[in-house]
Structures are given as structure tokens and as C-alpha cells.
Simulated scan of single mutants.
Amino acid sequence: MEGHVVTTNPWLVMAINMTVVFGVLICLGFLMKLIYIIDPTKKKPVKAETVVPAPATESTKSVEQPVATSNDEEIVAVITAAICAMGYSSDRIASIRPAISNSWKLDGRLTGRT
């Protein structure tokens, strides 16, 4: 049988090739699932510790400490609205972070605008 063609039927060749291709894809899918399950870089879930507040005394009841709040969400919303008003969509905004300098003039010079 050396040098003889096993089959000349194109449908059989196509079926064999597709079986091999999809078999390899299924094996790769299982391998990806396995790697996802045993992923060593996945962060471990942090168990929430229950903190029992200390009983309040008379001296701590009269003094209220101010609660520190940040307006980061409001600032991001305003910046996003301003960028959208300039014609960009909110999907194109990758990140919003504070600039290195607080000076608009210096920032313009650094970016090449005069």
C-alpha cells in the first residue's frame, strides 16, 4: 500500500479534517477551563471580619468625629460629561487620573500647545 491514495472522496476528507479541528478546539476549551479552576494568580476571597464596637462612654458620646467623604464620583461624572460635550463618547474614556502638574499653562506647554 505504499504510495497509494487512501481516499479520493472529498466529503470524507472534509469530515476527517473538521473532526480533527473541532476535537483540538474542544481539548483547548477543557484546558482553558482547567487553568481557570487552578489559577494561582487568582485573588483569594477575603473573609469579612466582624468588628464589635466598643461600648460608648459618656465622653465619647458628646464628641462626634467628622466623617471623611470624598467627591471622587462627582468629579469623575463632571469630567466625563465635559469630555462627552466635546464630542467624544463615554466608551472611549479609558481612565481619569490627576495630572502631574496643577498649572494649566505648564500642562499646555508640556503637551506641545502654546
Rank of each mutant, 00 (worst) to 15 (best):
39 D>T: 01
39 D>R: 01
39 D>P: 00
39 D>H: 02
40 P>Y: 00
41 T>Q: 06
41 T>S: 03
42 K>W: 05
42 K>S: 10
42 K>E: 11
43 K>D: 14
43 K>T: 14
44 K>R: 14
45 P>V: 01
45 P>R: 02
46 V>K: 14
46 V>N: 07
46 V>A: 09
47 K>F: 08
47 K>L: 09
48 A>L: 14
48 A>S: 15
48 A>F: 15
49 E>F: 10
49 E>H: 09
49 E>A: 15
50 T>V: 13
50 T>H: 07
51 V>K: 07
51 V>R: 03
51 V>L: 05
51 V>P: 00
52 V>K: 13
52 V>Y: 08
52 V>L: 09
53 P>D: 02
53 P>R: 03
54 A>I: 14
55 P>N: 07
55 P>R: 06
55 P>T: 06
55 P>A: 10
55 P>I: 07
56 A>H: 10
57 T>C: 00
57 T>V: 03
57 T>Q: 02
58 E>D: 10
58 E>I: 08
58 E>W: 05
58 E>Q: 06
59 S>M: 13
60 T>G: 04
60 T>H: 08
60 T>F: 03
60 T>Y: 02
61 K>Q: 08
61 K>N: 06
61 K>W: 06
61 K>Y: 04
62 S>R: 13
62 S>L: 13
63 V>Q: 02
64 E>Q: 12
64 E>K: 13
65 Q>I: 15
65 Q>K: 15
65 Q>R: 15
66 P>T: 11
67 V>G: 10
67 V>S: 12
67 V>K: 11
68 A>E: 14
68 A>V: 14
68 A>F: 11
68 A>W: 10
69 T>Y: 15
69 T>D: 14
69 T>A: 14
70 S>P: 10
70 S>K: 09
71 N>A: 03
72 D>H: 09
73 E>D: 05
73 E>N: 04
73 E>G: 01
74 E>P: 01
74 E>H: 07
74 E>T: 08
75 I>W: 01
75 I>S: 00
76 V>M: 15
77 A>F: 04
77 A>Y: 02
78 V>G: 07
78 V>S: 08
78 V>L: 12
78 V>W: 15
